[in-house]
Amino acid sequence: MKKGVLDILKGKFLVSGDAPKNWLFLFFASFLATLMISSSHRADQKVIEIAALTEEVRALRSEFVAKRQELQQIRLESTLRQQVVDNGLKPAAMPPQKIRVKTEE
């Protein structure tokens, strides 16, 4: 038992005859550890990204509605009518006439 502990402390498993097998396992273990750490970081990154995107969606949505509202308001006939009344324009009382020429197929 005492010898075993001493061997480990001396790092015998890294240099003894069947060391390559141990090395392989060590690499594998450290690879797994790296993977775990990086994926955890990536998850954190994603959370930040999602928060930013959510914020962007909210901003775009609000901007869309605000601009749309502005457009809808100025597009209304009642608004237009007020704006052009100084130019002497008013809505037509008669419908527009379309003349469609029939063409032979």
Binding site: P91, A92, P95, I99, R100, V101, K102
Partner: peptide, 13 residues
């Protein structure tokens, strides 16, 4: 509604 609906006349060329 009347003045907003165009009157369409079809004529032969």
């Amino acid at each position: 509604i009347y003045s907003n609906s165009p009157v369409v006349d079809e004529v032969a060329p």
